[in-house]
Simulated scan of single mutants.
Amino acid sequence: MRQSILLLLLSVLAFSCREKKPAPEVVVEQPKKASTTFYEVNQKVYVHAHFGLSLRKSPDPKAEKVGVAQYGEALEIVALPEADQTYVAETVDEFQLKGHWVKVKNADQKEAYVFDGYLASFPTIEEEPEEDMALPEWFYMTLSKPKGEREITPPNEKEGIVEGYKQAYQDGGEFELILYNGGVTQFLRIPTSTLSFSQALVVLRSFYFSNAKNLKIVRNAKTKKIKVNDTDNPYEWLEFEEKGDKVIVGFYSAD
């Protein structure tokens, strides 16, 4: 009897060993490196620099200048920049507008290097907006589609509001227009996933002040807001502020 039980136990143990599968190999994925650019090779990008961009023979601000890419001009990416090619184009108090030197070619197939801090993946606005639509609202439709209908702001005599409205967008952005007795205010609340603070500053100061020749840009050390205005018109100015995951851009115009 004991011999039979022993043989039975040995048989069960042998069967269990045969059926047991080896543990699956654990594959640990290496973290992906964060991209230093918003574009890819062969992608088309557009110049949003107010007075155009210098095209240079090599990736250096002191390299030979071989041409100029004008505001709104389309360029094609030829090669991505090295991550350590960071260049600071503007410094405003503690704020720095940084970027890289990227190799591009223009419509004439001429290849050169250009600073990418003034480039964007969407074109500049060259056409008139639809009727009953503010230009910034028209502009934002190039970034994201509207979400729902406008939310009308009722008149408020105490605050001097004559009329206004808000328009939400699918990316979480929002445009707001308020018409006062003494002027108008416009706000763009842009997710940083759509435009970074630097991109918003570059794109929108040229967008609002495309005809200005004497732009002034200052940073308030206390509020950290950046103010941009045309020195020839002190009654209109832009303010840029980063709050959480939003870039708040306010345009103020007084009568």
Rank of each mutant, 00 (worst) to 15 (best):
G72R: 02
P61A: 02
E242A: 14
L119S: 01
D132W: 09
P129F: 11
V68Q: 14
D116R: 08
Q109W: 10
T194K: 14
Y140W: 15
D230F: 12
S35P: 02
Y39K: 07
L9G: 05
K243G: 00
F175S: 10
T185R: 10
V78Q: 09
L97T: 01
V47D: 01
F197W: 12
L80N: 13
V114N: 04
I161L: 07
A34Q: 04
P155M: 08
K103A: 00
F209I: 11
T194H: 12
R2P: 04
F197E: 04
L8I: 09
V27L: 03
A212W: 08
L238Q: 08
S58G: 07
K103D: 00
L6V: 12
T142V: 06
D84T: 14
G172I: 07
L9K: 06
E25F: 05
Y180M: 08
A14Q: 05
E64H: 09
E73T: 04
N42G: 01
Y180D: 00
N181R: 14
T91D: 00
Y46W: 09
E159P: 06
A221S: 15
E90D: 10
I226P: 00
I161C: 04
K32D: 00
Q170V: 11
S198Q: 15
D255F: 09
N156Q: 07
D245G: 06
N181W: 13
D116N: 15
V41Y: 04
V203M: 13
L204H: 09
E239S: 11
N211G: 13
A69S: 15
W237R: 10
Y208W: 13
V104H: 01
E90K: 06
K21F: 08
I5L: 11
V47K: 02
D255P: 01
Q96L: 01
K216T: 14
G183I: 04
S206Q: 08
C17H: 08
P81N: 12
Y71M: 07
Y71T: 06
R205G: 00
E163M: 06
V203G: 03
P234F: 14
S193Q: 10
L55H: 05
Q43I: 02
V66L: 07
E127M: 09
A74T: 14
Q109E: 15
G72H: 11
E40H: 09
N156T: 05
P81V: 10
V28F: 03
A107T: 04
Y252M: 10
A212V: 12
E19D: 08
Y252P: 01
N229L: 15
E40L: 06
R150N: 06
K44Q: 12
V247P: 04
S35A: 12
Y180S: 02
V26E: 03
W101M: 07
K216Y: 15
K227D: 01
L188P: 00
E73G: 02
N106W: 07
I125G: 02
Y208D: 10
I77C: 04
G173K: 13
V47R: 01
